[in-house]
């Protein structure tokens, strides 16, 4: 059960090899976390993630090979989460891929795959778990969006569009499940130094995965609806969102 300080005893990470997702679990393991389920496509990555969590004392780690862009995988994931965890207190939707914004490297198949990985798959997982939680009568979803989705830039327009979609879906879902005892928290990090962004030029206000994890757990404790990492981005994007397009498209990066 989630307690009054917002901390869960069980958690699922969709995108279970995500550095941010694992960092959040490591932070939660300092408190009440008892059992987790990690879901991702990559079996060996899952095994490494399991070892990492066991090292910080999470007793029960189950793994599920799962491609969130496949409906049957999402359905199987939700039912195995319910059976292995009992009550699913927290689901962290962390799946995603940065991909590219070079037109010559974006054939239709790649665009479809990226939209599936950043929007379609995470959306399917978020809605499926929200529905499970509505039946449970409790639970929290943490959806990893990005400030890239707040105003889509030319530098990562496919990724940004995917994040815009999942961000909007999460906000609407939050209102839809409120009366079922379920809450949704949207996390909007800026540039996070992880294996996904390695080799990319850093943007201003870059952070590490552990910074995101700390902010997410504090957000859970505060009962926050939207979390920016670092917090200053809330104000930066208040401005950036309203810049005239002629100015916005000339911004570096």
């Amino acid at each position: 059960m989630n307690d009054a300080t917002g901390l869960p005893q069980t958690a699922v990470v969709v995108g279970g090899t995500s550095e941010i997702g694992l960092a959040i679990l490591e932070e939660l393991a300092k408190h009440r976390l008892e059992a987790v389920l990690l879901a991702a496509r990559d079996r060996s990555g899952l095994e490494r993630a399991k070892a990492r969590l066991e090292a910080v004392g999470v007793g029960a780690v189950s793994l599920e090979e799962c491609d969130v862009t496949k409906a049957e995988d999402v359905e199987r994931l939700v039912s195995s989460a319910a059976s292995s965890l009992g009550t699913v207190d927290l689901v962290i939707v962390a799946a995603g891929q940065l991909g590219t914004a070079e037109l010559d490297q974006l054939p239709p198949a790649t665009v479809l795959e990226m939209m599936g990985a950043n929007a379609g798959g995470p959306a399917a997982a978020a809605v499926a778990f929200a529905s499970l939680m509505a039946g449970q009568g409790c639970g929290r979803l943490v959806v990893l969006s990005s400030v890239a989705g707040l105003r889509v830039r030319r530098a990562n327009f496919v990724y940004g569009a995917g994040k815009a979609a999942i961000d909007g879906l999460a906000l609407g879902l939050s209102d839809a499940v409120r009366d079922a005892g379920v809450s949704v928290m949207v996390v909007r990090p800026g540039f996070v130094r992880t294996k996904m962004t390695v080799g990319r030029p850093e943007a201003p206000f870059s952070v590490d995965a552990t910074d995101v994890a700390t902010a997410v757990v504090e957000g859970l404790e505060r009962g926050a609806a939207v979390v920016y990492v670092p917090p200053v981005l809330r104000y930066a994007f208040l401005v950036l969102r309203h810049l005239p397009r002629a100015v916005f498209r000339r911004l570096p990066g």
Partner: peptide, 16 residues
């Protein structure tokens, strides 16, 4: 009737 309940402290909440 499905209702979101809490104790006097207001948190946590759950539906029953």
């Amino acid at each position: 009737q499905r209702v979101v309940l809490s104790g006097w402290g207001g948190n946590p909440r759950s539906a029953a």
